[in-house]
Design a protein around this nucleic acid. Structure first.
Lengths: 346, 346
DNA sequence: GTGAAAGCGCTAACAC
DNA sequence: GTGTTAGCGCTTTCAC
């Protein structure tokens, strides 16, 4: 840090008063200060271009007004939308966000957790990429308020989660109602709560309407790796779609674990002269902004991402403010968004 | 903040030594400490789950190891890509990023600048939404190192900018080489350096190849407003494309100020049964990931966003490390990416 | 080798 | 109404 010198002492000296008074004036404390002195302090502070050092303040107050947000990856629009929601609420309540991309790597996630703890954040909103939540739990026990979203975790904390089972069910139901019997499923590894549950709902749907699940139509990748300059899910969709095309029998419709995957799938199909939805109907999950920008526009299941972000922040701030001990758990209802990528079977 | 009590004192007491020694051990200082004592300190710290309080450290060291990043909006993929680049470099050098979305609002931008200053960031990487850079300059003068990218600013600081004029030129040249003479231009207001320069390059291109610029084919919106849950540029493209369609004469090709706008344009055209590129060729600018996901895949001008982010961070960190006074200025060469949204005029 | 103590910039309890 | 001062958690100088 450079000379960035002007401190509260400089202002006090310039205004010919004490640092206590300066602090009172500058913080609009309701402590009585003569108007004339207050004015003087204000004008001197302005003259000196005084900007308070938050670090000193935070150390003294033992309050950072920061909340940490950990997400897998910022390039899937799902997360930016969410962050916008979080940010809006946080800002409005005087909180700042420290954003961290785990790049889907548990090691990074833990590093970030530690780093956020060091920075004394008051709470953390996280979509964890881990299955065991040792470190998260450790921090929760030490008093950091945790809100998980998108993924579930294996201990008691605040949760904002959409009803994935219902979402998967809605997707299956939609395809079946369009007359499809050969329904495929394309996904990244089922190693996360969200995916497992979506799949569960999907299977439930097939069962409920007496449609057979055919293993030949199910394509799930083994690996999940994120690069700084690539988009994992999109590539994954492309790869799995090509795998599907290499089989002798094709389904008439596929449900993809999320929109980015679906977009990759559609593109790979189109490249191989399979028309969507004419030849194969495709449905996604998330309803990210670009799902309506691709063509055919994607039929999908809305997770209300922006709203989810707002809710997560609201829960966290409420808990922080009221210093509640009890954790909240909110379930968001997903809904089906029908666009152009699915159609009645011909 | 909660009781999060364990401090360096607790560790010192537990290890039966002084805080000075604890600090030395924990920071791997090259100060001599008897191995046995050091081990003891380490084990007690571990036993107590000691995690250092960065705020105390920062206050003492007068060094935050934080850099601020201010961007207009996180939902346009252009920025996430950039941030990934910045983040990678920053992480590798022990720096953390404080990310801020100005939502294209100068007032927010200034608020964030002030907030970052308060947080004692060592440098700021910014895509400013302002034309006058009063406050940015003010902070630069106070010793914060500034790197601007994407937009230019009106004072001397570090700049990572792509050659917008060349980019605009490339777009015009491409369309002309495909035989187009009726070339349109669709853009958000030309109130930012980037847009002005791109337009300039575009006009240069038309002139160089003796193609007339027809005012009837130019559509530029008056207003620029960002919402938390909408995507300005995409909507803007849709609106302007509809305006274009309401005219009696249409161009055979249009150049859009960026990819998101182009995607909006293409979609509005398609909704009105204008085929791209058969009826109208469309070219964008940015080469964001989704430009290859839409269909037709977008012909565009690559800004090397990820690389730009890395470069911005590298410049900042180098300047910080070497404490250089002189500012650096880097120009990135754009390049044309031909995909499916443009074709030879029939 | 080790520890005491000053001080980073700030707030607030306490004294006057 | 105003000022003095302790102390937030930490690093580092200086003394031993």
């Amino acid at each position: 840090m450079i000379k960035r010198s002007t401190t509260i002492y400089d202002v006090a000296k310039a205004a010919n008063t004490s640092i206590a008074t300066v602090s009172r004036v500058l913080n609009n404390s309701d402590y009585p200060v003569k108007e004339k002195l207050a004015k003087k302090v204000l004008s001197e502070a302005k003259k000196l271009n005084y900007i308070p050092n938050l670090i000193g303040k935070q150390l003294k107050n033992k309050k950072s007004n920061d909340i940490g947000v950990i997400i897998p990856n910022i390039t899937n629009q799902f997360y930016p939308q969410l962050i916008q929601g979080i940010e809006k609420v946080a800002r409005e309540n005087g909180y700042n966000i420290l954003l961290c991309n785990s790049q889907r790597d548990p090691i990074n996630e833990n590093k970030y957790l530690e780093s956020l703890f060091q920075k004394q954040v008051e709470g953390i909103i996280i979509s964890s990429v881990q299955n065991i939540h040792e470190s998260l739990k450790k921090f929760a026990e030490r008093g950091i308020r945790i809100v998980v979203f998108d993924q579930n975790v294996d201990f008691d904390c605040n949760k904002i989660i959409i009803d994935f089972v219902k979402g998967g069910f809605l997707a299956a139901k939609h395809l079946i109602e369009l007359g499809h019997k050969k329904i495929g499923f394309i996904s990244a590894p089922l190693n996360k709560y969200s995916r497992v549950k979506v799949f569960e709902g999907f299977i439930n749907g097939l069962k409920e309407f007496n449609v057979n699940m055919n293993k030949d139509y199910i394509f799930i990748s083994n690996e999940e790796k994120e690069f700084y300059d690539e988009i994992y899910e999109y590539n994954n969709g492309r790869i799995l779609a090509r795998q599907m095309l290499s089989k002798s029998k094709l389904p008439t419709s596929v449900f993809c674990i999320n929109d980015m995957t679906a977009i990759g799938v559609i593109q790979a199909l189109q490249e191989n002269s399979i028309e969507v939805p004419k030849d194969i109907s495709v449905i996604g999950f998330d309803n990210i902004p670009i799902s309506k920008m691709v063509s055919p526009a994607l039929t999908t299941v809305d997770q209300y991402t922006y709203k989810m972000g707002k809710m997560a922040a609201e829960v966290l701030l409420r808990i922080l403010k009221e210093n509640k001990k009890k954790n909240e758990s909110l379930l968001i209802e997903p809904s089906l968004i029908v666009r152009e990528s699915t159609k009645i079977i011909s």
